[in-house]
Design a protein around this nucleic acid. Structure first.
Lengths: 254, 254
DNA sequence: TCAATCTGAATGTCCGGACAATCTGACTAC
DNA sequence: GTAGTCAGATTGTCCGGACATTCAGATTGA
């Protein structure tokens, strides 16, 4: 049996700027996160007890606790009563944010391209009306886009938005993601309900994505809500599974 | 334009039991959550200010804040400085937990059944060794299961576990989920890295799931870590997309 | 030698207060 | 009537302290 790794407490250079408008707990948590990211705080190492840490920084214990807690919530740290706080070993990257395909592709270094197929107002079908919480047959935006990477079609995106929220400019839609446009329009995205499945491609779908009829497709439906609870977007997407899969990290709810 | 809904502050009957070992903030947050679930606190209604609430309950403001904060983290409440705290409109259910298929099915009222096909020790392949962080060709548990609902095959689950963590009893595997067994064995699940995709069924896969060769399958791979960062499970699952899809709610990271 | 017990250390919970930042709505001035 | 200003309300941040709970390791006893 391997000896139980007793990692040492790490002495870290930390400091806070009291004249800054940035909250003290936030300054501290960012420095700690950077140290973890950077490898200064190695996985398994203890953080040193809160009281001593507070004294060293000239902060109160609640403030230090708030900083630590935010990192615990992110899954970067683990607290053990009677033991201490230590850095988690595993390679936690990001606990699944409400991301856009465009941003994901851009972050992955693939230069994404978008072709807007449709950008118009249509009467809401029963399905769309139910998802967005608007009256049936009332006007909604309908946007159909083809997302390409390296010139190859990767996904077909069909989105519906309630009217009056945002001006949908076709030019802008081709150069950035829908979520970025919505945020820029002052909409605070809050939560989303997603459903991921698979099915065989119809002839029309196959043609759009340069696949064959009957080929497996990855499908995703999503309703997004802002912080007042309004549904602000409903989307039906199909992806080519050979080109795309959903990857994410998730934490256990405590 | 509909008038901007100004929802009233709700007067709620709340109480805490100081003799209980349950933390006060937790008692409060549970009562609030129940009231939201139950509909006593309607979406959009204000919660009443923290100071008055604290006074009414005989608690301090930090304790009340801690209770409220936990519900904000769950996405049930939204705070606005200068305004107050109000209940989110949207139907937030659960922010995607690390769930097991077995529990999901049971919660959905489908009486799940499991058929254990394989339960043995095998030398780790390169892929498995990398995922679990063990030496190649070292012994690992291999469990293959068929998950049925209403007598119909729904998913084929292949899992690998490092040795020494848990006794895998075939009988137990048939009556409950793997995650429940692991938790019962004292393993604290912490996070997981998942990948969801789709592909066409091979002949062998098709036969197992009563599908046809080439039929679309939903696939999921997952590595689960405990709170020390050890990989405790690696799984490769295939689902029948006509019978199963991944549904979850997610919150924007703040 | 092994098991039960004790002790120190660390986090968990809770209190009461203080001041700052921000939003809403009403008031005022033009 | 409209725009700017001001005051009140409410959450955000921070402090310092107190005691409870839990864990790991050392001590003690059989």
């Amino acid at each position: 049996m391997p000896k139980p790794e007793v990692d040492p407490t790490v002495q870290l250079e930390l400091s806070v700027d009291r004249s800054s408008p940035v909250p003290l707990y936030f300054q501290l948590s960012q420095q700690l996160e950077a140290a973890i990211e950077h490898g200064t705080l190695t996985p398994g190492s203890l953080l040193g007890n809160e009281i001593e840490l507070a004294a060293r920084l000239g902060l109160s214990r609640p403030t230090v606790r708030q900083a630590i807690q935010s990192l615990v919530d992110k899954g970067l740290l683990v607290r053990r009563r009677g033991v201490g706080t230590q850095v988690v070993h595993s390679q936690v990257k990001r606990p699944l944010e409400l991301s856009s395909l465009y941003d994901d592709l851009e972050a992955a270094g693939q230069r994404p391209a978008t072709k807007v197929l449709v950008n118009t107002l249509v009467p809401a079908s029963a399905e769309v009306a139910a998802a967005l919480g608007v009256a049936e047959d009332s006007d909604v935006h309908r946007v159909e886009r083809l997302r390409l990477a390296h010139g190859e079609p990767m996904a077909y995106l069909c989105n519906f938005l309630p009217p009056g929220l945002i001006d949908l400019d076709t030019g802008q839609l081709e150069t950035t993601g829908l979520y970025r446009l919505m945020r820029a329009a002052g909409i605070t995205l809050h939560s989303a309900r997603q459903s991921i499945g698979a099915r065989a491609a119809t002839t029309v779908e196959a043609e759009r994505l340069a696949e064959e009829t009957g080929a497996p497709l990855l499908t995703m439906q999503r309703v997004t809500f802002d912080d007042t609870g309004r549904a602000v977007e409903y989307g039906t997407h199909t992806y080519r599974p050979t080109r795309y899969s959903f990857e994410f990290q998730l934490l256990v709810r405590t």
